[in-house]
Design a protein around this nucleic acid. Structure first.
Lengths: 201, 201, 201, 201
DNA sequence: GATGAATGAGTGTTCATTCAT
DNA sequence: GATGAATGAACACTCATTCAT
């Protein structure tokens, strides 16, 4: 990892725990193992580190969404629930909410959204807008094979999205991201999904 | 309002927007209109302002919960859905999430929960534990009159609670608390409730 | 002397020797014997010290010019050359160019005039505009008693003013203001005056 | 222009406007379009740039004075006033006070003379000593043809030199060297010269 | 000739806090 | 209750300079 990457990595860890203002350049440099003046060779100023992180996050998210774009475009193929359910879990968790960089950025944005409009918009998009649209796309693809009405689909997706969002805040954006909390999230998601499927059946 | 109250009021407004560390004693005093040395007559130090706010919030919440304790303890009384639905709305919104002090504290706790365990516990209790228990209590009281199974009640409450929690994060703890966002929250809550009642019926 | 006055005094001495930018807040505080944070109790920032000095200088100059306003307003009174010559010397030197505060400010302005328009204007007014006008007023008062033509007066004043200005730059605004240089200035002024009077007679 | 020359050129422009200390290596390199480390290939350190400028100025001045050495050494030749007057103007202005390099150096020395003895001596020599000696030499050569007494010559030269020095400070070493100020200087010099000749005649 | 990466010392400024009045 | 004056520690950032490449 280059010095620049190391700085961003350390900065994100600190920002996501204590907030942008509460973290000093000294803190970051101390952890990275460089002098403060060295940091200013790689970044124009403190704000530049923030901007670089946001920029990296945007790229990260765009790539993720790119992967999902194709889902459900081939409705004729028999897509089993199970397959899709796995798909959801994959996209939602491992490279999104569970992904270290992504998760830390979300925590960071959760704190900064109250006084940084750019981060607020990104936070809103990442936690509310995008996941809803993705789930809508996936469920629609599945549901079309079962002849479920559009109105019903919308309501089911809303409820499912709400449940998973609540779980995200409850387990993945609450305190430290421990293995325990990850497991609790997994458990609740599966429990909900299995009951939901049974009920709506 | 006494000077002490004014300090707490100003401090909370600033803390909930910029975070504890990012707000300086100077900032608070400037807004209140006193000298920094004066603040130290009313509070031992900066942490003392924080503690006072937390303490006030705990009292506030306890009073609120006290009001609710009695609900549903008289299951034989015919309690109509409508009455209870209003009750929920009342407790959830006007003196809880919509209440200025409460709302600002929640925002503040949302930021500080990542590095302050005391605030994290309070945040968890206020947004996840307590609302779920209250809704559980209220719905149980209602449902018992309709002969709905306990397992079903639990699932319905979970889903309802999840939906309202999601809306809370989406509208009431996102950026500035504008009238627009309050109305959007209201609208979504009512829309969900009416559809939910119709579906589960 | 109050702390604030002491800061201004020390700052001026340093500014006038090394220039505004080359003098650090640390330098000033070290000499005054206070901590840097204390300086910021008395002054908003470094620029504020500069502004206070300029403001003080303006007041100083205005008071000086106030004294001179009355000169030559009573042309009928027999005003001997000697009396006026003393007057000039008095106003020009003891409370003007020789005055420690004034002299240091002039040196300071001499350095800063190239990149500070406010100081440039003040510098121009203090060294070129005002002295010429004053000398004009005084000489006119004297000359009227001798029936010297206006054109001649103007030329004489111009030459006299030019000579004294040159001497000012040569002796009073050159290196350190030593007793030697003051004496050399005095000597040259008197020598010039006595010869000038003899020649134009 | 070589990189080294470009550095000196840029440095002088900056030094003469903001002073030696206020200009950073960064500033210079930014303007030149090189990295800071590159500058150290051409100059030992910051002081070395200053020394090179002083050295270049000394050479420049010496060449100028070399041209003048011969003037007035042939008193028998009929040298008309006009010719000499032009000579003075030529040496004083175009390759001296008006010359970009020279003018910038004078401004620079004007600022640094208060804390740099080497520059003070050079400043004194360039603005007071040398011009006086040159004018003395030239006027003597002319005056000898008219039988003017040595005492008178000295006084006339002193006054003329003082007038031109004052004008130099007033127009050529005051703020930016604009075309306007150059013209004002020219105008005042000619006006003075023509009146002086007429008066002393 | 030029650059990327680094550094120690220093820049102006703000921090929470104290204490005599 | 409130303030004027002070402080040590920390803040983000810039300085001139070095050195391997």
């Amino acid at each position: 990892m280059s010095t620049k990457e190391k700085i961003m990595d350390v900065a994100l860890h600190m920002f996501s725990e204590r907030g942008y203002e509460a973290v000093s350049i000294r803190d970051i440099c101390g952890e990275v193992g460089i002098k403060e003046s060295t940091l200013y060779y790689h970044f124009k100023n403190k704000k530049d580190i923030l901007d670089s992180l946001i920029s990296k996050f945007k790229t990260h998210i765009d790539e993720l969404l790119g992967h999902i774009e194709d889902i459900g475009t081939e409705p004729d193929k028999k897509q089993t629930e199970a397959a899709e359910k796995n798909a959801i879990e994959f996209y939602m968790m491992d490279s999104y909410l569970f992904d270290p960089f992504c998760n830390l950025m979300l925590r960071f944005m959760m704190m900064e959204q109250f006084h940084n409009e750019e981060m607020r918009l990104l936070y809103e998009k990442t936690l509310f807008t995008d996941p809803y649209e993705i789930q809508m796309k996936v469920f629609t693809a599945i549901a079309m094979n079962f002849g479920i009405s559009e109105t019903d689909i919308e309501f089911i997706v809303r409820e499912t999205h709400a449940y998973m969002t609540m779980l995200t805040f409850k387990y993945l954006l609450n305190g430290e991201l421990t293995e325990e909390r990850k497991k609790a999230y997994d458990r609740d998601v599966h429990e909900y999904m299995s009951r939901k499927m049974w009920i709506t059946e």
